[in-house]
Design a protein around this nucleic acid. Structure first.
Length: 230
DNA sequence: ACATAAGCACATTACGAAAC
DNA sequence: GTTTCGTAATGTGCTTATGT
């Protein structure tokens, strides 16, 4: 029964990856942001452009083979749907932390209950952080039309500003299957985020990349241009 | 017009194990 | 016993969407 689910998952993942293989490998921050802006994609002002750019690419390349967006539970909406609900994510490989933050815990639990599992399509790449002079950040700031209200507040608070990524070199796209077993195993939920105004955030599921193994049912490798796992 | 809560993805700290 | 180190736990920076 469970094996059947994995086979089904793998089949869908393979189908999605056929189209996903065509996306660009070299993501230049400035180009990516301009591309989103010119396409009137609403998220081009976001700091974490790698996340939104991957989502942007998925919508562009996958809109014919899957439903975008996916089902909604409470206030949480999945990015896409094909057989099961899917979420698109990006992650930098060359950092110390390999935890990836997934969706709202309750929404995931409900989705698993309804469809048996949910999937994460994870773009993994090496990123450049060489923005010590903050020229990239300033470029983005200017394009956005100056500091946001939040940023002015942040400066007033004396808090630090996060380092921007300048480019990403896509290495791999993983398809991760999340069911109840994974939830129990990864177990580490995250609660008590602080929101922009200081209010608490809802609990989310946290996955540790290093502990994932059989959950990664299928992946595309951009280095060797072949798949290592079926 | 404003507050609230969601989206994106870390960054920093705290703490126990391991090494000296 | 103390320092060092790896990982789990906890808290942050930023923007958009939605509802009043």
């Amino acid at each position: 029964m469970k094996e059947m689910d994995k086979i089904k998952f793998s089949r869908i993942a393979k189908e999605i990856s056929n189209d996903l293989k065509k996306i660009p490998k070299e993501w230049d921050g400035r180009e990516a942001i301009l591309e989103m802006k010119n396409s009137e994609y609403n998220q081009w002002k976001q700091m974490e452009w790698i996340g939104f750019y991957f989502q942007f690419l998925c919508e562009k390349y996958l809109n014919k083979i899957m439903e975008i967006p996916g089902p909604k539970y409470g206030n949480t909406e999945f990015d896409g749907f094909k057989g099961i609900p899917w979420d698109f994510k990006s992650h930098a490989i060359n950092t110390s932390s390999h935890q990836i933050i997934v969706n709202d815990s309750e929404a995931i639990a409900k989705a698993i209950n309804e469809f048996g599992a949910v999937g994460v399509i994870l773009a993994l790449g090496e990123v450049e952080y060489n923005d010590d002079e903050r020229t990239f950040q300033m470029w983005h700031e200017e394009l956005k039309g100056g500091l946001s209200k939040y940023s002015e507040e942040r400066i007033r608070r004396g808090a630090w500003s996060r380092l921007r990524k300048v480019e990403l070199n896509l290495k791999q796209i993983s398809f991760i299957r999340i069911d109840d077993d994974v939830l129990v195993k990864s177990g580490s939920f995250q609660r008590n985020f602080r929101n922009a105004d200081g209010s608490p955030r809802r609990e989310k599921v946290l996955l540790n990349l290093e502990k994932l193994d059989e959950e990664i049912v299928y992946f595309v490798d951009f280095n060797q241009k072949r798949k290592l796992k079926e």
